[in-house]
Design a protein around this nucleic acid. Structure first.
Lengths: 345, 345
DNA sequence: CATAAGTACTAACACGCGTTAACAATTCAA
DNA sequence: TTGAATTGTTAACGCGTGTTAGTACTTATG
């Protein structure tokens, strides 16, 4: 039905050349256009409902006006990521404000190197933001050497790539310190994901540092590794309870996992926080609504998303950002899942 | 550093013309290419790390190999949509399998008409999937008349657009029937969103039909309207409890909202399900982990996403799908938040 | 042997836009 | 009056690819 309207059509209707149309609509200041001519062009464009073709524009101007959000997890884990909506919501704001498109891409683990280069060359995007990067991702080194603007949502030491993250080590330490201050000595830990995910190993480090700082012994038997979702938290807590009946608190490095762990604790007939104190990480919306309300480390998800976008925009414009790595503040939200250690009968 | 590699470079290295390169790499069968020539071309492309430019390809072939996921909610609500990860996870599968890109777009309410046409014309995408459409969205009528492949994730009566959804009315009716079978007579309702969102009014209809079917009177005072997130559910339940202390069950048309409502109930000193039975809708992951576990209507989110994609793909290929509207089955998950009515003292 | 019918490839145009270099028209300075 | 400067506009090229129409060469056909 509706024929494609090109800038030529606008030019014809306005009685000018296609070049003039381009100058007017793109606001090219280097060439001065008579106001009445500009008005005529705008009027014609309006009347025809002209919208420039994104592909043609990208091809000619060598910029796609779009950025990529790259995820390397399995779709199954994407599906259970309570964090994704917060990130997307935060990105939408900036993206919309800057007239950008947002291309979501999932890269198969193992295919990273090939994929990053392909995305680059393909040029449907001008830059990319990498979610939950893994330290064993060989593609990141290749990205470093390329000239593609890229930002990591998550800090990996030793990389030249820019990043936005919180200080996971410190934040985890604060969370565990809280448990220690409450008198707990036997504190278990369930990580949020496999070690290669940077946030996982860093939060685990914070846990160990807190123990060390308080002179508590680190017991590997009190540690389990979960896998993003609540179900894994449930299973790992069951495992902990079976083998170690005597810990009185647990640091769980992700709220989604923690919520699963809480269920396992209740099913074991134990009370939170009377028998076991639990502190999470992320502060996803659900954390404020479970019973008891989950004490957790607040992650400024929206701010992370926004800063990532803006940092990427700077890189795309060729600017030199002040800092290579942006570290945003976290704070511990003490709610109802942590309490003073009571001597159990 | 890395210069852009074009098909011309590949042609030069392989000692053939650019056209031949195109034929080989795109597998054009209409023209026969000697196997050894094809091998030479592939070898050269491999060696140079050639990746076709997406924009140029889109421009020339008039197809962008990408689809759009359009959301019309505010970013603030996107951020609290526990459903989004499930949808995205489901779409990723199909999208990846078909070598498509996924462009996520947020359209400001009120700007729909202009935006849909712009997205069309812009041609960075070949088709679009509209999440949570609103029945008062005037842009949808315009979409109908255009020839842009589009699929609604959510059914709106009277539209020619294809859709994928569950039977919200029936599903809600089953949920409320469950409460009725448990002996409840005073059953409140909190909707999931404003009426124009199709799912909201449909689930509300199901609620009313169930009441009517059981000969129960419909009391408008027992109805509240929430706004997607848990906090709104919390507030609306508080409002319900203040003014109507005598209902014994509530149907909440979204789990996120229901989880907020549960908190309000507990804070009022009431027990679930002994004092108030509650049944939700959606079956988000958290529903299985709150206390008590939430009885709810299971939404096949992943399947909805996948069917939407595949339906859209059919439309993009110019095929005529068998049915205009796909309706997927739901089922009631009875867990722990619903129980037989006990006479309260 | 001449014609027809493949086979293997290429030159050339189109897609819609941004942009440079040039050109016509007007104004200004000498 | 002439040349230079300024203002307003456009012809023409390039971005990297898909695709049609055509060419040269080989093989079958009468």
């Amino acid at each position: 039905m509706s024929k494609r309207v090109t800038s030529q059509d606008v030019a014809n209707l306005a009685g000018v050349s296609r070049t003039t149309v381009s100058f007017v609509l793109n606001d090219v200041k280097r060439f001065s256009i008579r106001p009445e001519t500009a008005a005529k062009v705008r009027q014609a464009a309006q009347q025809l409902g002209y919208v420039p073709n994104a592909s043609a524009r990208a091809l000619a101007s060598n910029s796609a006006m779009a950025i990529g959000l790259i995820m390397t997890r399995n779709p199954q884990y994407i599906a259970s990521d309570s964090f994704l909506p917060l990130i997307m919501g935060g990105m939408m704001d900036v993206v919309k404000q800057n007239q950008l498109g947002l291309l979501v891409e999932w890269v198969e683990p193992g295919q990273q190197l090939r994929a990053y280069m392909a995305l680059t060359r393909a040029r449907h995007i001008d830059g990319m933001i990498l979610m939950t990067p893994r330290s064993d991702d060989t593609g990141l080194k290749a990205l470093e050497d390329s000239d593609i603007p890229a930002v990591l949502m998550g800090y990996i030491p030793g990389l030249k790539l820019h990043s936005v993250d919180v200080d996971n080590i410190q934040a985890a330490k604060v969370a565990v310190d809280h448990l220690i201050e409450l008198g707990h000595q036997k504190i278990a830990c369930i990580t949020n994901a496999a070690t290669p995910y940077s946030s996982s190993s860093q939060r685990f480090d914070g846990y160990k540092q807190a123990l060390a700082g308080a002179g508590l012994v680190f017991d590997p038997n009190l540690v389990r590794q979960a896998d993003f979702d609540s179900h894994s938290g449930y299973k790992q807590m069951q495992s902990l309870l079976e083998t170690n009946p005597d810990f009185t608190a647990v640091f769980v490095a992700s709220d989604a996992v923690a919520i699963g762990a809480m269920l396992a604790i209740r099913e074991a007939g134990l009370r939170i926080p009377e028998d076991i104190s639990i502190v999470g990480f992320d502060d996803i919306p659900a954390a404020s609504y479970v019973t008891p309300k989950l004490s957790t480390v607040h992650m400024p998800a929206k701010e992370i998303a926004q800063h990532s976008c803006e940092l990427l925009l700077q890189l795309m414009r060729g600017e030199k950002p002040e800092t290579k790595d942006i570290s945003l503040p976290t704070h511990l939200k003490i709610r109802q899942s942590t309490a003073y250690l009571e001597r159990r009968p």
